[in-house]
């Protein structure tokens, strides 16, 4: 199945400025599997999203469609075929 990942501006230095990445995944895959697949070709991108334990970084949010995975099953949240996945940094700092 195909999933579209939307990349925030701050991380496009790791995608050759691509705003989106299309990822092929087995049916029934979750967000963890999506990130693992992304990380095969682009480890620098994925370690901005998760630490080396595989935990989502504190100020990074991942949405599957309109669902923040923190409100779902975390990285075990299932990604449906054709879903759009958004990586969104928290609005914070100074």
């Amino acid at each position: 199945m195909a999933v579209l990942v939307r990349i925030p501006g701050a991380l496009r230095q790791f995608t050759d400025n691509a705003r989106t990445l299309e990822v092929d995944l087995p049916e029934g895959s979750d967000v963890a599997a999506l990130l693992a697949t992304l990380g095969c070709d682009n480890p620098s991108l994925v370690r901005r999203i998760c630490d080396e334990r595989g935990n989502l970084r504190q100020h990074v949010n991942v949405f599957v469609g309109t669902v923040n995975v923190r409100d779902g099953n975390g990285l075990s949240t299932t990604v449906p075929d054709g879903a759009e996945v958004y990586v969104i940094p928290a609005v914070s700092g100074g």
Binding site: R48, I49, H59, V60, P89, S92
Partner: peptide
């Protein structure tokens, strides 16, 4: 290190 994107 970035407060959002972690250390490097």
């Amino acid at each position: 290190s970035s407060s959002h994107w972690g250390p490097a």
